[in-house]
């Protein structure tokens, strides 16, 4: 029963990789999706993710409760989002450039405050074992999932529903589609976008908590490797639809998992290029979906102004 899996090990490792690597992509893209729906773009999610990872790890280590860590990460993300939201609500401030500043600031703060956290081991989030039916250790290992994964899936569905059927969702979408219409309805564009950026930061930072409290499950300076940066690309790929964010996260998680999986199977040349696969994939997607003559399908109209 416990003979080697042979070549089946590669797709299994990819599947396991997707289950472990996708959730951060999912959370960060859902957060970015909310922000972009309101007509603003937050390129600083990388900083939010790293700060979230650091604060979740730190609080979990200090308090012993990983869930408190997740909450702390969300709160920090909310604050970072608020800073971005406040600055961008001033006239003539470029949200894309400011996002890069927030990325530097978030990373700097996280690396600085997280210096003491590289050594200690924080309490990790519990995981659910879906591979209980199998005797193959590889299968058991691959099918472990974290509780945050179903939380993220539920959040995606809730967000999809909320954008469609609730007043708040409509207001956010309206702000993204037409500034004038929002004003005419008596809503403050700045308030809506501020809140959307702040809550988007909250959601994105939970992805960071997943990184440090589940997989890879430690804190170091290279924990995120640009996943927050890719949030913008994921949302473009998902066509600003929260449900599609799930598929986008799976594909990006898979692209990230395929390199190590092949390496484990003994195919180890071109490691670096393999690791760049998600970035190349994003570029290709952007080139295919963009056009000079027509607007992006599904893109919030006000976002188009800052994106082109």
């Amino acid at each position: 029963m416990s003979q080697s899996l042979g070549y089946w090990g590669v797709p299994l490792a990819v599947l396991g990789g997707i289950l472990r690597l996708s959730p951060p992509f999912l959370f960060v893209s859902l957060g970015e999706c909310l922000t972009e729906k309101s007509g603003r773009i937050n390129l600083g999610q990388e900083g939010t993710l790293v700060m979230g990872a650091m604060s979740a790890y730190g609080i979990s280590y200090l308090s012993g409760s990983p869930w408190l860590g997740v909450l702390a990460a969300g709160a920090v993300g909310f604050i970072l989002g608020s800073i971005h939201g406040w600055f961008c609500s001033r006239p003539r401030v470029n949200d894309i450039a400011l996002g890069i500043a927030m990325m530097f600031l978030g990373e700097g703060l996280a690396f600085y405050l997280g210096r003491g956290l590289i050594q200690p081991q924080a309490t990790q989030l519990a995981s659910v074992n879906l591979g209980w039916w199998s005797h193959q250790p590889e299968i058991v290992a691959a099918l472990k999932i974290n509780i945050l994964l179903p939380v993220g899936l539920a959040l995606a569905i809730i967000m999809w529903w909320a954008f469609r059927y609730t007043r708040w969702g409509m207001v956010v979408r309206l702000a993204g589609e037409s500034t004038d219409a929002s004003r005419a309805m008596g809503y403050s564009i700045n308030t809506i976008r501020f809140l959307a950026t702040a809550v988007g930061g909250f959601i994105a930072a939970i992805g960071g908590a997943f990184l440090s409290l589940y997989y890879p499950g430690s804190w170091n300076d290279n924990i995120s490797s640009g996943q927050g940066l890719m949030a913008v690309a994921l949302v473009i790929f998902a066509r600003w639809n929260p449900i599609n964010c799930i598929y986008a996260a799976v594909i990006f998680g898979g692209a990230k998992a395929i390199g190590p999986a092949l390496q484990a199977a003994g195919y180890s040349s071109y490691t670096y290029l393999m690791n760049a696969a998600p970035y190349v994939l994003t570029m290709v997607i952007m080139i295919i979906t963009c056009s000079r003559t027509r607007a992006w399908v599904g893109a919030p109209a006000e976002l188009g102004a800052s994106l082109r």
Binding site: V93, L98, M102, F104, E107
Partner: peptide, 20 residues
């Protein structure tokens, strides 16, 4: 070194914000 990164981030943030 991350302290300098924090300073650089703040500097960037305020310079861009001052555009307004």
């Amino acid at each position: 070194n991350s302290a300098a990164l924090v300073f650089q981030g703040l500097l960037f943030l305020f310079i861009l914000g001052a555009e307004t």
